[in-house]
Each structure stands twice: as C-alpha cells, then as structure tokens.
Design a protein around this nucleic acid. Structure first.
Lengths: 352, 352
DNA sequence: ATGAGGTATGTTAGCGCTAACGCAAGAGGG
DNA sequence: CCCTCTTGCGTTAGCGCTAACATACCTCAT
C-alpha cells in the first residue's frame, strides 16, 4: 500500500516534471537498475563503482540526457565548485586577459567561474557582491582591488579564500597576486629622467579613485619629486568610451598649456597611443622632440610606429598565479606564500 | 523532551555550522521573531509583509550578515535567476562589449550572468556547456553562434529560451540578434570596387571554421565574383596572440606575392590596422596607391591615420537587445519578433 | 450582528542531491 | 576454518529554501 502510493505519486510527479524537462538522478538510477547513491558516486568519480555499473549508468544518463543539478549537489555537499570573480569592467582588455588566465586552471580543476561586474556605484557593487556570495562560491578572486568598505566587509564575512590581484600597494584581505603600480610608474619616470627629459607631463583619469591609478600617479610624483623636477603637469583626461581619443585630447591640451614639454607619460597604453598620434600629428618628432610612454604593453604598443615604450604587466600570468594560489588553498594547503609579486618589465621601444 | 532534543541538536548544528560561517534564513526568522516564510516573503518582495515586520527582518539580517542561499532558493522554486552566456573568448574585445551590453539589463532585472568560456576543443566546449546547464539557468545567450552539434543538442534539450547573437546567416535555435556577416563583407567589397579597386586581397583566419569568418569570406567572394574580378587573393593570416601583428605579416606576404594589389580587405580591424601600418612602412600611400579596410570599427580604427574605413557592428547594442528579447520571453511574452537584424554601418574614413 | 473578502503570517511538504553509515560478498593471511 | 580487510553498493537523513495551502484577524457592507 505504502509502496503503491509512493509509486503512484512518483509517476504523477514525473509526468508533471517532464514539462520542466530535466531528468533527475533518480531516473538514471532506476534505468540503470542501481540506487541513486551509486549514480552519485559514479559522477563524483572518487567512489568505488565497478566498471560494469559505471558503464550502465553512463548509458542510462546518455539515454535520458541527464545533466546533474549542481544547485542540489551544492546544497547537499556544502561545496559549490564555483569561484566568484569580481571585475570592474568586462570590456577592459587587460582585465579580460587576467580573467582568461584565471578561467583555464579553474576549468581544468572542475571549478566554474561566476563573474560579477562591479564597476558601478558602491550600491550596485554591494548588490553584485551579495548576489555572487548568495551562490556560496568556494573562493573569490578580486580582479583589481577596488571595493568599497561595505563590500570588503561582506567578502571578509564570507570566510572563504580570497585572492586580490593587480595591485600590491595596499593591505591585503587574504592572498594577493600582482605588482606595485607605484613602483612601475616610478621606474618609468626615472627612465625618462635618466634619458634627459626634464619637463614631463602626466595623463591619467579624473580624480583617480581607482587604486591602481592613484598609485601610478603617486609613483610619478615620487620620482619627479626625488629628482627635484616640476611635478604639477598632471592632467585628468576625463571619462569617455575610447582611451585613445582621451589620450589624444589630453596630449593636445597638455601641449597647448605647456609648449616646452619634452615627455608625456600616460597611465595606460591606450592614452599613450593617443598621445603619440597627437604628437605626430602636430609634427613633433618622437622621440627626438618629445618622448611618449604608457603602462600596460597593450598589443598595439608594439605595432604603432615608432613603438610605444611602456611597462609590461603580465596580465595573463596574474590570472594563472591567482588561480594557482586559490586551488592550492582549496586543497587544504595553507603553507606557501600568500602574496606573489610578479613584478613588471620596462619595455623600451622607439617612443622614448 | 522532543523540544529539548530539537533545541539541543539545533544549537549543536549551529556551532558546527558557524565554522562554515553563514547565517540561515531560520536564524534571521528567529531573531526577528517571525517564521521563515515571512522572511522569505520579505526577501522576494512580492509577498505581503507589514512594514514593521519588514524592518525587523532587515535589522536581524544586517545583524547576522545574512545573505540568502540562492542554490537553496533555486532548488525550491525551480527558478535560478541565472542566465548562461557562452562566449568563444573572454579576451575578444568585441565579444566583451556585447557581454557588457548583456550584463546591464540582466543585472537590473535581478538575473546573474553565468559565463561559459567555450573557445576550446569540441570536447571542452561540451563540458563547459554541460556545467553551465548543470546550474539550471533560466535562459541562455550564445555570443557567437559557433557550437558543435553535440553542444547544440544539449542546449536544445534544456528547453530554455535561447538567444544566439552576432551572426544571422544561418538557422536559429530559438531567438537571435545580430546582422549578416556575409552582407557586411559583401557591402565593403562593393564599396572598394565602386572606388575603382580591381585587385583586392583578403586577409582572414586559418581555414575559417568560425562561422562569422566563413560568412565574411563568402561575402567577399560573392561580391568579387559578381563584379567579374579575381577572387583568389585570399590569405589565412594564421593564429597568434596579436591580431595587429598577424595583419601586418599577412599584408607583407600578400604584397610580395601580388605587387599590383590596389586594396587589402581584412576580416577584422585588428588585421586591418596591422595591414595599414605595413603598407605605410613600405612607403605605399594609403589610400592613393592602396586601400585598406577592416570590419568591426574597433576604437583604434578611428585614431590610426588616415583613419581605417570599416564596418560598424553595434556590438553593445547586440547585447542589450539580446537581453531584452530574453527578458521579455522570461516574462511570458511569446509574441514579438524572434530574430532582430541590427544591421551594420559602412564607416568611410581615410584609408579607402 | 454576520458573513464575505482582504491582509498578514504560519505550517507542511518537498526541490535533487550527497555525507555518513550499514552491510553483504569475496579476498587473503594465519 | 575463522577473522580481518577490501570492494561495491544500499539506506537514512538532511542541506536551505519556497509553493501551496492553512489560519487568525481585521474591515466593511448587509
């Protein structure tokens, strides 16, 4: 009787559910003639299931088009096999490269990346972080370190492993991979000074609230100050869709205000390329009359004549190493470095 | 006794769980002095909960740092509020822009994007698709339409709304937003021919298995054939990290094999910019001696002198409209167009 | 007064999966 | 021969949440 009722209601439910469309593990188990637990073990790979049984299960699953419901697995096992990644902007090419560097090792290790686009207001950011944490990721990788205090609190409260990337100039929540933006900008400035440049203009973003640009500007200011040079030729290039256009306009503005400029240092290569083109348009020989440099080593930097002198930042490697740190931690390895400085590389080309 | 046991085990569990760290809805309910269902309703926003109760719940949640477990919500409600997005490569700038265009409307509507990076082997692709479907997304947006038959089958079996994007030259699974790559390439070729170019070289990718490049090449061939011109000057630029470098090398190769070329048409602007620079390096005046064009209207196209003539593709709008179609469908609106042709725009600049 | 209809909240019964334990059958050592 | 150990599989009891159905109370027309 109880058996009959169970059977009956089960069939009814299947019929209803079929509209939704998904086969469940119980369906696979029934078709393969085993218990659900055996199917579960077969899918997890670690349990002991005989080859014959495994094959029957695979066949049944293929017949039904079974795809395991990971939400249910997560709820039951308390592990989501999801890694959250916060990113200020998906269309920022360097961040996208870091993301790609992250994605590969995680995919191979069986983790799915859940990407949270955070580059909005603090309120939106909090909502984005809250949503990804709602999926109970096993870890979080922050691409770029800019999070408002509330978001940082929320992340810390999650008590999951966290890797911050891209900037090492500030305190770290847990683990970090990147380089010192300040040092990178400082080094480039020193290179320009060593090359005899004295009147150096700097182009970055409006009131850089973004950490890495704050640090880059500070690096520039430090180096100029140490050399006893004017460090007030600093321009906010403003916001806009194209970094190239902003760099071009910024350079034009700078050159009009300070005709004696002998170098322009841009906080990113997009600005740098724009500035370079503007100098050339004005008939200023680069690097003879004026030097132009950037940061980032974007693909275009190597191609644009005479080649943009810049700082290479290992964007992909940052992602790979961040994934490595995270995976080691998830496997329970708490030894090893928590902060990886991947450094940077001055790339001297024709423009300076 | 039963009460005591329940209480006891509950406390024990809380202690154990606290290590994991997350407050549960039951904790919020207890602290706020209401039932779980009331908390659930307060979070879903649609149920009737008095303002006073709502405030007490909000306070309790804030105290405990409660973040709803979305996996549990999904399991129970059979809705994940997740939209899957498949993308061939995260670091492809145009796709990234489409992704951004997608992300905003979905975020506003309370959906989280789950991004599957698919640009690998067919086997990897299948695994990626299977994993995202395991999260039971409420819908799927395919950025780029390239999926192997097995992946397409799997997606169709999921019986969720699907929007394909970027290429409209082929049969559609469900809904689609994009333009005709073939027509875009055809139009550009016709423009070159109308401008008096007769010996036109074409640069794209190795054996284009990628649909949109197949179609673009076919568009080129169609137009050349229709004009009765040689259509065999076609070059696979090969794979490599930098599109610019490939375009440059491709142009160099083409110019050596066919010194009389009077135009080079590249399947993407990255190639186009590389080709343009190579022509200039060789002292060929652009557009006097030779025309160079691309497809995509990347930011750099407008900046590089004399300006790259290209085809604008509305990458962001594709994303926005795709999100719009999907959201309308999710709200139960099955009327309206299922295929949106956003067209393209010939952008004439100095290079042709 | 009285029942109809609304509003705010509680109760019950799962969603699909896995951890933890249980148990039978065979292998291997003494 | 027994005892242990290993292998292969089944049973039970939830994971944290919500749909669907109560229930209590309040308002208002009759």
């Amino acid at each position: 009787m109880a058996g009959w009722r169970a059977e009956g209601s089960d069939i009814t439910k299947r019929m209803t559910k079929r509209i939704g469309g998904w086969a469940r593990m119980a369906d696979v188990a029934k078709l393969a003639g085993v218990s659900m637990m055996t199917v579960s073990r077969a899918y997890q790979g670690n349990g002991r299931v005989s080859d014959a049984t495994r094959a029957r299960i695979a066949e049944a699953a293929a017949t039904l088009g079974y795809v395991p419901n990971l939400a249910a697995a997560q709820l039951s096992s308390q592990r989501s096999r999801v890694i959250a990644a916060t990113i200020p902007s998906l269309s920022h090419s360097q961040f996208a490269i870091t993301l790609q560097g992250l994605a590969d090792p995680f995919r191979e290790a069986g983790y799915q990346l859940l990407i949270a686009d955070c580059g909005y207001s603090a309120e939106e950011e909090l909502r984005a972080v809250s949503t990804v944490l709602g999926h109970r990721p096993d870890g979080l990788v922050a691409i770029g370190v800019d999070h408002c205090p509330a978001a940082r609190d929320m992340i810390c409260n999650a008590r999951i492993p966290v890797v911050e990337t891209w900037d090492l100039d500030q305190p770290v929540m847990d683990m970090a991979v990147g380089f010192s933006n300040r040092l990178a900008a400082c080094r480039m400035t020193e290179y320009l000074i060593a090359g005899g440049r004295r009147s150096i203009g700097y182009i970055d973003f409006p009131a850089p609230v973004v950490r890495r640009f704050m640090e880059r500007r500070r690096g520039f200011l430090d180096a100029m100050g140490a050399a006893g040079l004017r460090s007030d030729i600093v321009l906010d290039a403003g916001q806009g869709p194209s970094g190239y256009a902003r760099g071009r306009e910024g350079a034009a503005h700078l050159l009009e205000c300070e005709p004696d400029l002998d170098a322009i240092f841009c906080a990113t290569d997009a600005h740098g390329v724009g500035a370079l083109l503007e100098c050339q348009r004005r008939g200023l020989s680069v690097p003879g009359r004026i030097a132009v440099t950037g940061i980032g080593d974007f693909d275009i930097a190597a191609e644009i004549p005479p080649g943009l002198t810049t700082v290479r930042l290992h964007a992909r490697e940052i992602g790979r190493q961040a994934a490595g740190l995270m995976l080691r931690r998830l496997e329970g390895d708490t030894a090893g470095d928590k902060v990886l400085d991947l450094g940077f590389e001055l790339v001297v080309r024709g423009s300076a």
